[in-house]
């Protein structure tokens, strides 16, 4: 464990807590893409299957349970909680996210580090995570408002993956044999997808005005 990875995990944890806070306290999911949340639930479900078969550390297992629990409860809130479901803008959240799942699955079947059931699903979860934010970014462009908890959520989510890239660079230089091109490329693509969001997010801070 290094400081970049710990900071990345904490930023990722903060992103889901900010979202849960928003949904639970103000009973609203306005501006939040249910489709992105569903993709994240699939990402965690397919990535953490090894929670039953391999034990890395208490921290690792604990965090996996937190991410699984939070992502599924956010989907539950947005789908089935009466008050929250009412605030979900279904007409705007229309990105065909199932079109993302199949290509990621095919790609994982073609490009992986080891052809085993767990490893292919793990690789699939990496590819899916890289593109899972797309429905949320599209929704954000439609609702044209980053000045709220959803904006903070996306900012933290992008920040976590950026910190992971620093973690991979650090591990590459400090650990022999630490080479994982698939993880690195998927992580880089994911972070690049946030580039324009970060641009407008920082503009908003510098300009101090609502950014269209």
């Amino acid at each position: 464990m290094n400081i970049f990875r710990l900071a990345g995990d904490m930023t990722h944890l903060a992103s889901v807590l900010v979202l849960l806070l928003k949904i639970h306290t103000i009973k609203s999911c306005a501006g939040v893409s249910l489709r992105t949340q569903e993709l994240y639930a699939i990402v965690f479900a397919t990535r953490y299957l090894d929670i039953f078969t391999s034990f890395v550390s208490v921290y690792n297992t604990f965090m996996k349970l937190v991410f699984l629990g939070s992502s599924f409860s956010i989907v539950w809130y947005m789908r089935y909680h009466k008050a929250v479901h009412r605030t979900y803008d279904r007409e705007q959240d229309t990105f065909r996210h199932w079109f993302l799942v199949l290509p990621c699955l095919v790609l994982a079947l073609l490009i992986h580090e080891k052809f085993t059931f767990l490893e292919v699903l793990w690789t699939f979860s990496l590819y899916l995570e890289a593109v899972a934010i797309l429905p949320q970014l599209v929704l954000l462009q439609r609702t044209r408002n980053i000045d709220n908890l959803t904006g903070q959520y996306i900012f933290l989510l992008g920040g976590y993956r950026g910190l992971y890239i620093l973690n991979w660079i650090y591990r590459y230089f400090t650990e022999p044999h630490f080479v994982h091109w698939i993880t690195w490329i998927a992580g880089l693509v994911q972070t690049l997808l946030y580039a324009d969001f970060f641009y407008y997010y920082f503009l908003r801070f510098i300009g101090g005005r609502g950014v269209e």
């Binding site: 990875r5 890395v56 991410f67 080891k114 044999h177 993880t183």
Partner: peptide
């Protein structure tokens, strides 16, 4: 050595 690495990251 191509020992199978365990995914130790989240």
């Amino acid at each position: 050595d191509d020992e199978y690495h365990e995914h130790d990251e989240l």
